[in-house]
Amino acid sequence: MKVKFSIIVPTLNSGKYLERLLSSLVNQSFSEFEILVMDGVSTDNTLEIINSFHDKRIEIYSSPDKGVYEAMNKGLSIAKGYWVFFIGADDWLFDKHTLEKVYKRLAKTSFHVAYGDVLIQGDSDWAKDQEVYAGKFDAFRLTKKNICHQGIFYRRSFLNKNQLFFDLKYPINSDWDFNLRCRTKTDFHYLNLIIANFSSGGISTNSKRKDQFYSEIPSKYPEFLPSKARIISSKFIHYIKKKFH
């Protein structure tokens, strides 16, 4: 079987939710995928639940890691699929035909990154319960809010060619930085499909929890800002450097 999708699932003591996610994956109408569970040495029943599925498409890699983004990097380094998809243990695919619908569209596109929407489950600081998040993004909009990685697909050959991995210095927003770095290399294609159910409650759903990346966006990605905003950002960065250095 040729692997069309590598589905990477970071886990750590995820037994409470994992059966729902894995059921949504193994029961897909499209079957040409691998599930790479990157476990951070769980001490609950996470591994028991995974093994109870008896599905050869599921591979478990359990070793200590520095958090979800290192687990995702590990998964990316061993993935074999044409397309890579990351999903959290407490999230799940929208319906049993999701991957089939996505693959039919990806097979016709030359884009290297394609994305759809997610259905929010539970209120967060940036989206409400049952809201469909978040429509089409241009580069400027991507500097203001991120595309949920539960709704985005990356061509693996593109990531490998450009040596794109998650930057571990951003413990909360590394996926946002990752998407912007991808965007500097290629345009994105909007699929106009709901891909997954996104469970609110993680650290990224609280607007008060931001790492240093949030303040670095104007200096790291000025090419995505309108000309006026670029000037303002440049002056602000110059002021900060002069004041504190």
Rank of each mutant, 00 (worst) to 15 (best):
K128D: 03
Y133F: 13
K66V: 07
S31D: 14
N197T: 02
E48P: 10
S77A: 14
T46I: 04
N197E: 02
F213Q: 05
I87N: 06
D167R: 06
N45L: 08
S42N: 08
T184R: 14
S157W: 04
D125I: 03
E19D: 13
F244D: 10
V102I: 09
S204P: 10
K80L: 09
K104H: 07
G135M: 05
V113C: 09
G81N: 03
K144D: 08
H189V: 06
E70M: 09
K220P: 06
I237Y: 10
G202K: 08
Q130V: 07
Q130Y: 12
V102C: 01
F224H: 00
T184Y: 12
S62T: 04
V41G: 00
V68M: 10
F140H: 15
D129S: 09
F111I: 02
W126E: 10
F198K: 02
H54C: 11
Y133L: 06
H112T: 06
A71F: 03
G88A: 08
V102G: 00
T11Y: 02
S227V: 15
S6D: 03
T186Q: 14
D44Y: 02
I195Y: 02
F30Q: 04
T109Y: 13
Y115L: 11
D177T: 03
H245G: 15
R183P: 02
F178P: 00
D65F: 05
H238G: 11
D117I: 01
D39H: 06
N162D: 14
Y214M: 05
Y221M: 09
R57F: 04
S6C: 07
D211F: 10
K243A: 14
F85L: 06
Q150R: 07
E48H: 01
S42V: 06
W176L: 05
L12Y: 10
R105S: 11
A127W: 00
S23A: 09
S215D: 12
A127F: 02
G40Y: 01
D187S: 12
H189L: 15
N173W: 07
F137I: 06
F213G: 03
I78L: 11
T43S: 15
G15Y: 04
K208Y: 14
